[in-house]
Design a protein around this nucleic acid. Structure first.
Lengths: 131, 131
DNA sequence: GTCAGGGTTGACGTTTACGTCAAGCTTGGG
DNA sequence: CCCAAGCTTGACGTAAACGTCAACCCTGAC
């Protein structure tokens, strides 16, 4: 089921990234494609991770931070202590993300205010031109 | 009223940035403090812009992008064509921010799902240990 | 057989966003 | 007078995240 793999070229086309970037992420231990001789075979797990990587980048996280975030999604051997540690870290990250969203909401609000102001200025000009 | 200015050191303490960063932002035309001889005097306008700069950075925008964003908040001479252009750009940016917030919401949702999963795994372990 | 179309590993180059000196001015305090 | 504190302008250094070669291997098509 989850047996399908993808070449580096397929991954690049699917996610609009360069081979260099994928190899770089691998070197930074963000991806671990299967090796068949020299060649790489990316699994669905790699696809999922890459999605998270690219999303993380859009939110301004460094690759080092993203690497930690990816670990939140890895339950490892499922040991209790490990799960608890994961959950702990996940909660911290959750708080971070929620705060970020609040700040983003504030920014959106300010921009809307400003746009309203500019619209009023434009309307004003219209009246005076018509008057 | 809006006459108060601040030295570079005061700015640094207030916003937790280095002098180097402020000079760098000035070089990139993100800030334009008043010059008295050699020395810089930051106005309240500079403070407002710096807030936006730092916020933009937290959201992963480059300084070049932030510079454009700052221009959205500058109404210039208030010419109709200029105001319309500003409004146009502001609307585009607004869409961008809203999309970003939606993506962030999705990310938060996924993280919450994962946390629920991990919690269930932990609860499971508890039951088996107790059983 | 050779040739284009993939893939591979180095290894050096580049951009962004500053850090980190060096060398110098100026101003209040003792 | 001298000094520390704070400011200034260069100018070189650096970390992150790749870009961009070069040089090589493999495979299927003609």
């Amino acid at each position: 089921m989850s047996e399908e793999t993808y070449t580096i070229g397929e991954m690049c086309r699917a996610f609009d990234v360069t081979p260099r970037a994928l190899r770089f992420y691998e070197q930074k231990e963000l991806l671990k494609p299967i090796r068949e001789g020299q060649h790489r075979h990316y699994t669905n797990r790699d696809r999922a991770r890459l999605k998270l990587i690219l999303r993380g980048k859009r939110f301004g996280f460094s690759l080092a931070e993203i690497r930690e975030l990816l670990e939140l999604y890895y339950v490892g051997d499922g040991q209790k202590t490990q799960l608890e540690a994961t959950l702990d870290a996940a909660e911290k990250h959750h708080v971070e993300l929620v705060e970020k969203r609040e700040e983003l909401t504030a920014a959106i609000g300010e921009l809307e205010e400003h746009m309203t102001l500019v619209r009023r200025m434009l309307a004003d000009k219209g009246h005076r031109a018509a008057g």
